[in-house]
Design a protein around this nucleic acid. Structure first.
Lengths: 108, 108
DNA sequence: AAACTACTTTCCAGATTGTCAAGTAGTTGC
DNA sequence: GCAACTACTTGACAATCTGGAAAGTAGTTT
């Protein structure tokens, strides 16, 4: 039965879909936590872009930002929340679902 | 060795990344061809959105648009080009590569 | 001849994204 | 002790991008 809003596309998480945020989430998903500078260099974004995108992810409750020191130098650590991890996995599952779209023969 | 532009994110195809176009490409990837109306209903977009997005994919050489008739009613068929199919598969591979980001222990 | 089908195109408003420059807060070098 | 530097953060701003609404096109049916 065909229902409005049933295409998996509607279940994509817009916040995660942007390439930068997707990459940041993927990075954090593979580690308990990561330094701001490490993520910035790995994902290859500017300080300002990472800072702003992380603020959005934090607002959404997907990422936590912890500030501390390494010696006397300030350092910021990023980590996924449980919610963020779930949202990321769900988003990836939806992408796969879309990518694997199967149109039955006869229909087209 | 770490090189500028090496994060897989830079290899995402911006044209394919948009949810609507990604869904359209996925649909076409699973069939030889599909009717405009079929794709519109499956992906759940308006005529105008599908028409515009398809025009972009056509310009890029990813999709071909064939107009014909079923009886006396006009009908439009969409299909991926070989280039479009490759671009789609490459894009999906890059998404998987990002999703599977592995940060070595010790680094973070 | 008016309505309808199957799109296409234009106008437009709102949201997103990135760059660049300036700001903050504390630290180090001369 | 003050200018420079580190590690971000914030603000101003321009460039898209996207989608909705509505009008347009071309041919068909009632």
């Amino acid at each position: 039965m065909k229902v409005a809003g049933s295409h998996p596309r509607h279940r994509l998480d817009e916040l995660i879909h942007s390439p930068v945020r997707f990459s940041v989430m993927a990075t954090l998903a593979s580690a308990d936590q990561a330094e701001f500078g490490f993520v910035r260099d790995l994902v290859e974004v500017s300080d300002s872009v990472l800072s702003k995108q992380v603020a959005l992810l934090e607002e959404a409750g997907y990422v936590t930002v912890r500030k501390g020191y390494v010696g006397k130098r300030p350092r910021t650590w990023l980590a996924l929340t449980a919610t963020g991890r779930e949202a990321f996995h769900r988003h990836v599952a939806v992408l796969q679902e879309i990518a694997a779209t199967a149109v039955p023969k006869g229909e087209r």
